[in-house]
Each structure stands twice: as structure tokens, then as C-alpha cells.
Amino acid sequence: MGGAGEMNATGNIPELIVNGKRLDGRAFDEMRPIKIVAGGLKNAAGSAYIEWGNNKILAAVYGPKEALPKHTQDPEKAVIKCRYSMAPFSSLEEHGRSGPNRRAIEISKVTREVFENVIIREDFPGSEIDIYVEVLQSDGGTRAAGITTAAVALATSGIPMTDLPYAVSVGKTGEHLILDLNKAEDNYSDADMPVAIGPRNDSILLLQMDGTLTKEEVMRGMSMIKKAGQTITKLQKEALRAPYESIMDRYK
């Protein structure tokens, strides 16, 4: 999020909407193409890979296992540990620093909180579940794509959950609400609102917002997200079913 006013001063804001279409030709409520593959990493308890537009993200799950160091244990339920990180070669710009920065630490935290809601943690007191999200290539919306991927990775691990969350963001440029911002849109839009939803009850599990939106826009944004969520949920389910169905098809 750049903040439009600030950019005005430089006189350098690119026009994000041309002839009623976005720069990459999408309609306002259109997501980028999404491809999800469940599994793939042998050592992890669960894993998944996503290509969401130009984002390429791996997620893996380890555990549940004994929480260490011991003082991190909760005698009532499993603790979730989450690390979101971006590869130093992930952006089109310069080489990044390795190791999590303040942004990555915050994203790790809000991602963890999404899954604290849905994982049935009471089944595994004293244990920990580790969720790793590695952004190999980034083009805006990596936290949402990371959460969507981690949900699939968790499902492949057999860790019980009450829901299969997805996430996507909605933003605003000029008077238009736009779904699923890419990097360029994210940099120059007037608002950005990433949201994670538990589709079973449409419960809001992650909500962040930055910029300027009216109440009406927030609510309209939420319905755009839920509509997109039907597609994302469908892709998550297909990805989870695919490895099993391909083996079943072999013996039809």
C-alpha cells in the first residue's frame, strides 16, 4: 500500500484502470489464475504448493510433536507455531535480505491465529504443530495465498480441523473496488483489505485493512471476497482430491 496522496506529490501514480479493465486485463471482481497441488514434500507431515498469478508458494506442516522448549507447552492443547518467509530471490526487484523481517513476523502471527481457530488443538495437549510458508516468488497477495496453501497442507497432514480456510484480498483504486491485488495494484491502490474466511460459517479469521474505505465499501468488499471464496474453496478441494482420484482412475 503506497498511499495515494503521497504518490500524487511525485506526480507518478500509474493509472490502474484503463477502459474499465485492470492493467493485466482483469475485470474488477476477477481473481488471477490459481493452481494448487497438494502434497509433494516427502519429509513433512503435510505440504502443498500454489501458483496464484505470479506468486509461487510452498507450505509444509510438521507435527503434532512434543512442544519444545518445554515452557512453550500448553497442558490443555497444542500450540501452533508459524513461520512465513520470503526467499531473497522472490521479487522482481533487488536481492532480499534473508531471515524474517518485521513484516514477515507479523504475517506469521496473523497466519498462526487463523489456524488456531480451526485446528482441533484439544486433541494434542503439550504438543506443537509447525506451519511453514515459503514464498519462492512474490507478486502481491502472498499472505492470502500462503494461508490458502497452508490450509491444504494441513488437510494433507491429517491434523483434524473444523474448517478449511481460504484468504484473498480486496482493494480500492479510484472509485472501484478490485479483487485480488497484484504487486503493482498493491503499491498504488487507495486501500487493501486481506481477509481469511472459514467457509463453513463464513467466519472472518483474518482481517487487515490499510487505506481508506467507507463502511459500505468494506461490506461490499466482504461479499466480493466470499464470492471469490467459492472458487478458491473449490480449487482447494480439487487439489486435495486429485492425488486420490488419479489412483482410483488407474484401476477403473
Binding site: 514434500l41 519429509n43 513433512a44 507450505a59 510438521y62 513461520r83 511453514y132 515459503e134
Partner: peptide, 8 residues
Amino acid sequence: ELLPLASA
């Protein structure tokens, strides 16, 4: 980087 997702 020996990523933590690569091995327990």
C-alpha cells in the same frame, strides 16, 4: 538455507 520445511 536448510529450510525447516525440508526436515524435522
